[in-house]
Design a protein around this nucleic acid. Structure first.
Lengths: 230, 230
DNA sequence: TCAAAAGTGTTTAAAATACACCCATGT
DNA sequence: ACATGGGTGTATTTTAAACACTTTTGA
C-alpha cells in the first residue's frame, strides 16, 4: 500500500433508490425514511450507509436493502456516483447510488416500520434531503430506459406473473396506458414467455394465466441486444 | 463533521476512457499509457488519478484528461464506479470511470508523448492492468447506446462537420457500414443540422458541405427524449 | 479524362398503431 | 343475470431497408 498511502481518503456511502409495486395497483412507490437524527432531522431521505473497507459496493447496497426490507436476494443496479464537494451539508461524501424494483408485498413490512420508512407514491413525493431528489429522478429515467431495453424480468419481476400484471407494472413505470392487445402481442412475439397451466384468480373472476420467463431465450436475447419498445 | 467522523475513509480515484477518432479514418482508437512505475510497470493502463478532498468528480476527470491531452473543454461522461475490494492488487481503491470521445488531431500530441501514452486502435488492444479491460468494454457499450439515444454532437463532435465524417464516426463506433442515402436522410430528418456554405475539401475533390448542430432544436429533442436508430 | 468521394429518390417490406367485441366466473 | 377483468384479430399508417446512377474537380 506504500505507494498509494500519501493520497487523501474520502468517505464513501451507498444510497438506495428502492421502487416498489404491487401487481394490482397502478402506482409505483418509493421507499423513504424519515430521518430521526441530525442533520436534517425529520426530513425524508433515501436509505443509505457507509461502505466498509472490506466490502464491495454491490454488497453494501444489498446489505442496506436487506436491513430495511428483510429481502436478501434483491437485484440492485448501480445508477450513478454523486460526488460534488458540497452535496452533503455536513462534510464531503461520495455517494454511489443503486436502484431496484421490488414487489411491495414480498418484503418484511415490520422492518420497514421499525426503520421509520414508508412507501410513498411517486406522484406524491415530499421534499428530500441533499441531492436525493436528483437521484430519484435519475433512477426513474434509467428504470424507464431499462424497461425498454430488456423486459424487466428475472432480476426485477417475480418468477410467475400474468400479462395484465406486467402491463400494470409498465403503465406504472411510464405513467401511460397501453393497449392491451398490442402489449400482449409484442410481449409474446419475443418468444420469451412460457404459459403455465394455472391462473391468478385474485384480481378477476375469470382469472389470468401465469407465465414464466424462459431463461435460455432471455440470455440469447441479452447477448444480441434487443429492444422492447412499447 | 463530527457525526460522520467515526466511519472509515477510502481512496477514490478517477479513470478515464478516452476514445479518439479522425474524420478520415475508419478506426476508433483508445488513449493508453505504458506504466513507468510499479506496480505493473511496463503494462498498459488507462489514465487515472486520485480525487482530492476539495475536487468534484467531474473536475477530477477533466483535470486528468487535460494533463494528458492538453484539451480543456472535453466533455466527459461518467460511466460506472468500480469498487470491488480486490480490483487493485495493491490496496483498495474505488474508481469512478469516465469516458469521452475526442478528435485525435485536436489534442496536443506532445503531451501525449511526454506521458508515454499512445493511441491504440480498438481492434488491437493489448492486455490492460487490473479491471481496465472491463472498463473499456463497458464504455464502448455505453458509447454505442449513447450514439443511438442522442446524436453524438455538441459534447462529442467538433462544431463543424460533414455528413460523410459523421457517418465514418458512426461506422467506427458500431463497426458496421451504413447505407449513405439512408444515413443522410435520417440525420437530416431530425431537423437538427444546419447546412453551411463552405465545404471540407481535404478528403475529396468534390468537397463535402459542412453542417452545424442547431443548439435550440437539440435541447428541445433532449427534453422529449428521442431516438436515432440507424 | 479519369479516379475518388459526394450527393440524390423510389420501391418494398416490416413494424407500430388504432380499434370493439366475446369469454369466464363469483356473487 | 350481471359486473369485472381477461382474452382475441384485422386494417391502416408509419417507419426502415434495399438499391444505382450522376456530379464535381484536382491531378
Amino acid at each position: 500500500m506504500s505507494y498509494y498511502s500519501s493520497h487523501p481518503k474520502l468517505l464513501v456511502a451507498v444510497d438506495c433508490i428502492i421502487f416498489g409495486f404491487n401487481e394490482n395497483e397502478h402506482d409505483l412507490k418509493l421507499l423513504l425514511l424519515k430521518r430521526n437524527f441530525q442533520p436534517e432531522l425529520g426530513k425524508w431521505s433515501l436509505m443509505g450507509g457507509f461502505v466498509a473497507p472490506d466490502e464491495n459496493l454491490d454488497d453494501a447496497a444489498k446489505r442496506i436493502v436487506a436491513q430495511l426490507t428483510g429481502l436478501n436476494n434483491v437485484y440492485m443496479e448501480q445508477l450513478y456516483t454523486f460526488g460534488d464537494v458540497n452535496r452533503d451539508i455536513v462534510g464531503r461524501i461520495i455517494s454511489v447510488a443503486y436502484f431496484s424494483l421490488i414487489k411491495i408485498n414480498d418484503h418484511d413490512s415490520e422492518l420497514v416500520k421499525k426503520h421509520g420508512a414508508s412507501w410513498i407514491p411517486l406522484t406524491q413525493l415530499p421534499e428530500l434531503i441533499f441531492d436525493h431528489k436528483e437521484m430519484v429522478d435519475k433512477a426513474l429515467r434509467k428504470l424507464r430506459i431499462r424497461a425498454r431495453t430488456q423486459p424487466i424480468g428475472f432480476e426485477l419481476l417475480p418468477e410467475k406473473f400474468t400479462i395484465p400484471q406486467i402491463q400494470r407494472l409498465y403503465e406504472a413505470i411510464y405513467q401511460v396506458p397501453f393497449d392491451k392487445r398490442n402489449f400482449r402481442r409484442k410481449l409474446l412475439l419475443m418468444n420469451l414467455l412460457e404459459k403455465q397451466d394455472d391462473k391468478e384468480k385474485e384480481t378477476s373472476r375469470k382469472g389470468a394465466y401465469y407465465y414464466r420467463f424462459n431463461q435460455l431465450k432471455y440470455n440469447e436475447l441479452v447477448e444480441k441486444g434487443f429492444n422492447f419498445d412499447l
